[in-house]
Structure formats: C-alpha cells, structure tokens
C-alpha cells in the first residue's frame, strides 16, 4: 500500500487491465431499477434504509427510469399479466445491464405454483444473480449484491 501511494505521489504509474479498471468502477456505481411488486419490496426498503444501508456498496441510488439504470432488481412475484411489462422494461435498459432475481418467486415461482404466476423470471430474461428467500433477509440481499459485484468485476467489459 505504502509503495503504491508513493508512486502515485511521485507521479508514477500503475499497470492494470482496462477491463479490471472498468469493472472496478462499474461495480461500485450500481444504479438500480427496483421493479417492486410484492412482499419482497418491504425487505428491499429495509435494505435500502439506515439499518442495512446498501449505499455502503455503491448501490444507494435507485433510478426509477430503466434508461438510467444498470441493474434490474426484480423484487417480488411476477404474474402472467405483468410479464410483458417486465420484459419491456428490460428491453428499455441500456447495455451493459444485469438482472437480479430477488426472492424465491422470481427465482422459481416459489410456492405459487398456479395459473397466475410466472415460474421464475429466467423463463423471460437472462438472470445474473438469484437471491432466494421468502423474502430474503437484508443480510442475504447484501450477500447477493456482493456476488453481483464480483461478477461485474470479473467479466469481460463491453465499452
């Protein structure tokens, strides 16, 4: 750490890959679109507020416009009536984009195996991180978020 600081101070340089730098920058500036539909929204609120403070991970700014966001949080049950809306929102987001399935209903449909519910949003969109739980605890959400950050860091970055 000391060495690195010295080099910066003395106008030196540090080598890295562009991918790693971009990944590092992207993973700490997650602009999320919370697509909140159901119960999980309550835990989403708790995660975002003071007790758990998702801002510590650079994901504190929810954008309610798909065009301004990088990560789509699908929070809560998706019914067949709502599925086209979700798909449209996903299509409106600009690349690069990631999708987080928040809660078991979005992962598999959960215990709503019936005529109204989509059996997992991965039948509609590509999903990057699954956060199971009905609803997941805030700690669980933060764990999922860190997994997403790792994924963003290590992937091939499109510029």
């Amino acid at each position: 750490m000391e060495v690195m600081d010295d080099r910066f101070v003395s106008g030196g340089f540090q080598t890295s890959k562009l991918d790693a730098v971009l990944g590092w920058a992207r993973k700490f500036s997650i602009f999320q679109y919370p697509f909140v539909t159901a119960c999980c929204g309550m835990e989403y609120m708790s995660t975002a507020c003071s007790h758990y403070d998702v801002d510590r991970f650079g994901a504190g700014l929810p954008r309610f416009s798909p065009r301004q966001s990088d990560v789509l949080f699908v929070v809560g049950t998706i019914s067949h009536k709502l599925a086209p809306v979700l798909k449209q929102i996903y299509d409106q987001m600009a690349d690069p984009k990631w999708v987080v399935a928040f809660g078991v209903c979005t992962c598999t449909g959960g215990f709503y195996d019936n005529y109204a519910t989509v059996q997992g949003i991965d039948t509609l969109l590509p999903v990057d991180v699954y956060i199971p739980g009905c609803p997941p605890r805030p700690e669980n959400v933060i764990d999922g978020l860190i997994k997403l950050q790792e994924k963003i860091q290590n992937q091939k970055q499109e510029v």
């Binding site: 599925a83 086209p84 005529y115 109204a116 039948t123």
Partner: peptide
C-alpha cells in the same frame, strides 16, 4: 384481476390449478 386473453374462470372447481395462459414466454 386477469387479462382478456385468459380463457376460463379459475375459481370454478373444474379449472385445474396450474393451467396457465402466458402472454409471453414458454
């Protein structure tokens, strides 16, 4: 509660619980 494309009336006893009419997807 449902959408116009849905056929049938789900709370009838002869409607199977997981007969779906998806708008998009499989």
């Amino acid at each position: 509660l449902l959408y116009p494309e849905f056929t049938g009336h789900p709370l009838r006893k002869d409607y199977p619980v997981n007969k779906r009419h998806p708008l998009i997807g499989p």
